[in-house]
Design a protein around this nucleic acid. Sequence first.
DNA 1: CCAAAAGTGTTGCTGATACACCCATGC
DNA 2: GCATGGGTGTATCAGCAACACTTTTGG
Lengths: 229, 229
Amino acid sequence: MDINKYKSHDRILVAVDCIIFGFDGQQLKALLIKRGFEPEIGKWSLMGGFVSQDESTDEAAARVLHQLTGMHNIYMEQLHCFSDVKRDAAGRVISVAYFALINIADYSEQLQLEHEARWFHLNKIPELIFDHKEMVTLAKERLRQKVTNHPIGFELLPEKFTLPSLQNLYEAIYEEPLDKRNFTRKILSLGILNKLDEKEKESSRKGAFYYIFDKNKYSKLHQEGVKFI
Amino acid sequence: MDINKYKSHDRILVAVDCIIFGFDGQQLKALLIKRGFEPEIGKWSLMGGFVSQDESTDEAAARVLHQLTGMHNIYMEQLHCFSDVKRDAAGRVISVAYFALINIADYSEQLQLEHEARWFHLNKIPELIFDHKEMVTLAKERLRQKVTNHPIGFELLPEKFTLPSLQNLYEAIYEEPLDKRNFTRKILSLGILNKLDEKEKESSRKGAFYYIFDKNKYSKLHQEGVKFI
DNA sequence: CCAAAAGTGTTGCTGATACACCCATGC
DNA sequence: GCATGGGTGTATCAGCAACACTTTTGG
């Protein structure tokens, strides 16, 4: 590639930072790490990394996410590019923030220890370095907005989930209670969930039926989103 | 600033590209330029420029927009960061795309000539360099989505505008006709427009009353958006 | 038998849509 | 007086919100 054409222009360090959302059945959480290098070593931070010449920011974000979680094929979406000249105290770094949705149960305790990572309830995020708090806030808003019209909530749940747990998830995202009957009716009326015969018996005597999200039924519905809640 | 901490990482050229929307009373248009430098000189392109060490991408986008239009304080919003390794044939360049909304009547013919710029109807965008077509498509979608809940349509109109012209604008953005009575009722019911005594007489015998968008009334309404259409 | 969570219908209201005629004016 | 675009009201329908009791079962 002939880079000479542009050689008179400034080159800048580009990073990615990942807001990793997880749901434990009750609460919506974000995965943070204790930063392992200077500056700001030892402070809480989003997981991030620099973008190299030979990868896109999408690729860099997937790589960073894999480093922390060992996971591949995670739902991930670009959030925003943060570029204030002074956002990073140690030098000029532009950061492209991404948010990811993972099933918290799949996340390995082992990796958590290795990286000094911890899940934080979204209302109890500690002080974060640089502009990471702003990133988390924006990600939360975006998630809330997105989940209204797109079937991405399922990314936060196990493959088999119960209607009460799905409702808990939406309540956690919206931070407000929903009516059980209205919720059930609406979500089932979309015709995108398959009911199993099996029941989940951990969280109640009676037990709640498992459901599975049916991607095919969904994609037949609408190309451009459906009102979920 | 101590940039040494990060010195082992790659530095990358970062650019901004602007999708500039305008509305001529009937049609929604985008401003494109004939690219004045290699590579791809002479081809149609979005207006863009490189981000320097001492400016944010927001600042760079505002600068670039000012270069082309001579305008300041234009509505502008970050769209997406495009970062495919091969997106620019001449080298690795990451581009942060922005879209801007301007009142087309304010745009100087003079500058148009200087930059070999032209307004194109959104359904008649010519072949563009690199991934610029993709940027335009995404911007159009984002505008459509945004305008549903936020009062940004007014940025595309003169300060004084008529209800028919406002309706034309929404029809152009949605690419579908709206019912005049329903449109009028809904938009007036928001209580954010002030009717003037004056009439616009260019486009009809009868004349249509001018209205003005009242920012104060709007901001009292809701912090977080209202359903416009 | 009791505690705890799952499951299930109806009603009223609000907002969305569909639709047609008269008005004002310049020519 | 006629052609052009501006302005206005009503009826129907669909979707949303509010609301409480019965079922199941482990202990």
